[in-house]
Simulated scan of single mutants.
Amino acid sequence: MPEKAFIGVKDRGLLAGLSNMLANENGRWWRTEKWIIQLTAWIVLLDLTMAFLLYVRPYITGEAGSPGLVSSNVRMVSGLFFSLAGIYLPFGIAIMTHDAVIRERELGTMAWVLSKPISRLSFALSKVIANTIGVMALMVMVPGIIAYGMISLYNGSFINAGNFFGALGILALLCMFYIALVFMLGSITKSRYAVLGVTALYILMSLGAAEQLQKIGVYLSWRLSYTAADLSAYGILAPDALAQFISAGALILVMLAVAFVSVERIEI
């Protein structure tokens, strides 16, 4: 890591070096081919799947031209986009961000960076902020905007923007939950396999939990993607939606707090 990346520290105290660290972490997303690869991958996984369902599937099934097909397809795809994103994105976040701290510890760059006038909080916070910006832009906002335009074009008029982008906000909350979870695990353990394994297990539990466990899933962010899908497709929010949002926000804050404390205690 070039030393010139950390020249001219302006921040002081708990946030010493944050601006320089943030510029460096953002550079890992935006000054390499990473953003192009990620954006292309998520457009293919999410938007091209929706395009296939809207424009190709009706001809394969023989439904093309059927009365009411457009409205039913719009409703189906509007919800399915968020259902699929709720599965794909957590796995993508785990793969992309699991070694944010582990890599630095293995390479010894964490010790080098912290020998500069940079606080541990700035070190940790810069990684959370940079990864959040990258995930929200490339995995949530751009594919979401493309999906909205594509579904509206198929519909012949704009679908309800409030419902769709409200659902996109719920999806962003789900992504923030998994960013916090992965970062917390990566701050506690040095094992990539542990971080990926625990995260994958949590995702699979959210997908395959029995009905009894789904009741507590309201408070574990398991139902956020379903809530987003219902809002986008039908314009309705579940009665427990507010509890889901508050619980997710609280868990995000707790996990980030645990992560920041863990980074403070890492021996280098």
Rank of each mutant, 00 (worst) to 15 (best):
V44Y: 09
V56Q: 05
L48R: 04
T97K: 15
T49G: 15
A5W: 09
V44N: 13
L22P: 03
G68A: 11
A41K: 12
W42P: 00
S115V: 04
L89S: 06
Y59H: 07
K116G: 08
L121E: 06
S66C: 13
L15T: 07
Y88N: 09
A16G: 05
P2D: 13
D47I: 13
M76N: 07
R120H: 14
E3L: 04
L107C: 14
Q38K: 14
D11Y: 05
S78D: 05
L53M: 05
L80Y: 15
P58H: 14
I102C: 12
K34D: 13
A16N: 04
I36P: 01
N20S: 07
A94R: 09
G79T: 10
V74K: 08
F91P: 05
S115Y: 14
E104N: 13
S126Q: 00
T49H: 06
W29K: 01
M21S: 12
R57I: 08
K116Q: 11
L80K: 06
M21I: 07
I60V: 12
F123K: 05
K34W: 04
M110T: 07
I93S: 02
E33A: 15
N73P: 15
F6M: 08
T49W: 02
L84D: 09
I129E: 10
I95M: 01
G13F: 06
F123Q: 11
M110N: 09
S122F: 05
Y55P: 08
E104S: 05
I36W: 14
V74W: 00
G8I: 05
F81C: 12
L89Y: 10
V113K: 01
L39N: 12
S78L: 15
P90N: 08
K116V: 00
P67W: 03
T61N: 12
K127V: 00
A124S: 03
